[in-house]
Design a protein around this nucleic acid. Structure first.
Lengths: 190, 190
DNA sequence: TCAATGACAACAGATGCTGTCATCACATAG
DNA sequence: CTATGTGATGACAGCATCTGTTGTCATTGA
């Protein structure tokens, strides 16, 4: 018989999401999360460096994107490599049910929304060396990645709103929008 | 004779920048900043909602961009309106000297780097209604703004590195790079 | 059998941030 | 000249986040 319940981290994550949903992020204390999960406040900080991180653990998406970019056809141009990687990113998403709860909680709290931005920025930084291995200079790589992130945000936003769209399709659609937005205007012939 | 020194907020800002430079952000306490500026900790929080904000007060750039976009030629396409507004953004920059100190301090502290991201995100959100008045739907507007922010980051990065380049030129250069990156590859004829 | 290890609790403390009330120079009215 | 209000600040108390440290007790393995 184990002395402690197993999966302490998972219990903390579930307790936190539940409490954030019902009382809001600001009004739930770390001590309360820990109590709900059957642990002490001090133990919480053994699993997560700070209160916000309880909703942001894991680097699956970053790892997936970096891996896909590094494995992409060397003939692809950088932006295409990024968008190709993005098209399969939904494979590492968890259930939409879970994602929706999480997105709602994050949107409701400035502190969590900030943490979301930081995670995106970290993904962007992690992709710089991946493009570097394809011969792109760091500053230029960061620029291309920022453009890809804009496409990603556009696709993700649509994906969350539209329950049944294929993520891959939405990425392609956003990429088409990018061309349309960025292209110099066709000379208007009168 | 005034009872207190004037420009309490400015004194706090200067003391904070100085202390962050010499000891780092984490290792300087709010009480220390306030003492250095000849005030109490409590007074610090009357001027700034939290410790990080002492380096981020003011909304001049956001106001400038929103104003310029709203005043732009209605015939311009949305991205062009944004980039045109961006070209004159350096008018509200303070001295490069001050900006460089600030950028270095921000880059040295994760907490401040985060705050920087949030400020950019707020600018992006503030621009959505400005494009809305030009007939662009919110989600699409946000997408175009994200693309413009990528261009802005590219130009700003070059501007900080190159002491004498005209900001307006760097924006134009980054915009050209955008076309090149986003354009579908020219069909290779063999 | 027993030492090492790992998972956790217990406690203390620094710091960030907030609420509340007192204080005191200054302005203005009477 | 006095009274009264106003606005900036200090003083103090308190909660929450986060960290350092140490003790406890199963489990593991020699």
């Amino acid at each position: 018989m184990p002395r402690w319940e197993s999966d302490a981290q998972g219990r903390l994550e579930r307790a936190a999401l539940e409490l954030f949903e019902t009382q809001g992020y600001e009004r739930t204390s770390v001590a309360q999360i820990a109590r709900t999960a059957g642990l002490t406040e001090r133990s919480f900080y053994r699993y997560f460096p700070d209160k916000r991180e309880v909703l942001f653990a894991g680097h699956e998406i970053e790892a997936h994107l970096v891996g896909q970019v590094e494995a992409a056809d060397p003939g692809l141009r950088p932006l295409e490599a990024l968008l190709t990687a993005l098209r399969t990113a939904d494979e590492v998403f968890r259930s939409r049910e879970f994602l929706l709860r999480r997105v709602r909680v994050i949107a409701a709290s400035p502190a969590l929304a900030e943490r979301d931005l930081i995670k995106l920025a970290h993904i962007a930084e992690a992709l710089v060396p991946a493009l570097g291995r394809r011969g792109v200079q760091p500053d230029k790589a960061r620029f291309i990645i920022d453009v890809a992130m804009a496409v990603s945000r556009r696709a993700t936003s649509r994906w969350l709103a539209d329950p049944d769209a294929a993520f891959s399709e939405l990425v392609a659609q956003a990429a088409a929008e990018l061309c349309e937005v960025a292209a110099p205007p066709a000379p208007t012939v009168r």
